[in-house]
């Protein structure tokens, strides 16, 4: 059994659940859009909202409830984001913090297994797991578009961009959790810390969108660089978003290597 297989075996249950849930969720959203006149229904709700909230929701959700827009909305639903965040946070916490606490990390690092190699293999395994979930979500979206509507090349390309965007966002979440895990003592603290950071950033993203004085914070918020609706509407900045998310991930990964290589175990 290789280390990759071990990581997969330890996380396969929740990974399968996430894959199935997100895939069905994507199909369900697209099915609802074809079955009901959701746009008209939601527009009437939107009319009741305060102007600032109306603009935001219109941008973020309702104006995209065209069929193609719904495919993007499926990638931006809080449930989907929460599931992916759980996977991204759980893997480093389980395989670094919990192992330091239980003593298995001590045993692993007494083997001919370098610390850098462990961090690298764990990071890569987590990327593969997140990639698989997002791949299934993308395929189910593409399939649902094809079944309930009609799949065009430009929609296909946009779904691929969105998938890449969400993949990079959650790789970043996983990498800062990894950094927290290698920097703190064993136990669940790194998981709580990372979940708290993710939640605060997510809330700040909405506050920044809704409240002018906080708009400046959007530049420092990772969720600002994840824009499925804009990509679907053709307004996305895919190169900027990819660059920033990838750059931050690389910096945090290098810092994690550095920190883990120098720390005491336990």
């Amino acid at each position: 059994m290789s280390y990759f297989r071990f990581i997969w075996k330890s996380n396969s249950g929740f990974t399968f659940f996430s894959m199935v849930f997100i895939a069905l969720f994507q199909v369900m959203i697209l099915y609802l859009v074809t079955t009901f006149d959701t746009q008209a229904m939601l527009k009437s709700v939107l009319e009741q909202m305060p102007p600032r909230l109306k603009i935001f929701l219109d941008d973020a959700f309702f104006s995209t409830l065209t069929f193609d827009g719904a495919a993007a909305f499926g990638f931006n639903h809080p449930i989907v984001l929460a599931l992916l965040a759980i996977v991204a946070i759980t893997i480093p916490v389980k395989h670094i913090s919990r192992e330091i606490e239980s003593g298995t990390m001590e045993l692993m690092l007494s083997q001919p297994f370098s610390r850098k190699s462990l961090v690298w293999k764990l990071w890569l395994s987590a990327c593969v797991i997140l990639g698989m979930i997002i791949l299934v979500a993308s395929l189910s979206s593409i399939l649902a578009v094809q079944i309930f509507h009609q799949l065009h090349v430009d929609v296909l390309i946009k779904i691929i961009y969105i998938s890449l965007n969400i993949f990079l966002l959650f790789i970043l979440v996983m990498t800062y959790t990894l950094f927290a895990a290698v920097s703190t003592k064993g136990g669940g603290f790194s998981g709580s810390l990372s979940a708290m950071i993710t939640l605060i950033l997510y809330l700040l993203f909405f506050v920044g969108k809704l409240w002018d004085p906080m708009e400046v914070t959007l530049h420092f918020n990772i969720f600002n660089y994840y824009q499925p609706q804009n990509i679907m509407l053709g307004n996305g900045s895919i190169f900027r978003d990819t660059g920033i998310l990838t750059g931050l991930t690389i910096i945090l990964l290098v810092l994690s290597w550095h920190r883990f290589d120098r720390r005491d175990i336990p």
Partner: peptide, 10 residues
């Protein structure tokens, strides 16, 4: 190790 611990899921 003094407190030998293996992976519980294996």
């Amino acid at each position: 190790p003094g407190k030998f611990s293996a992976y519980h899921n294996l």
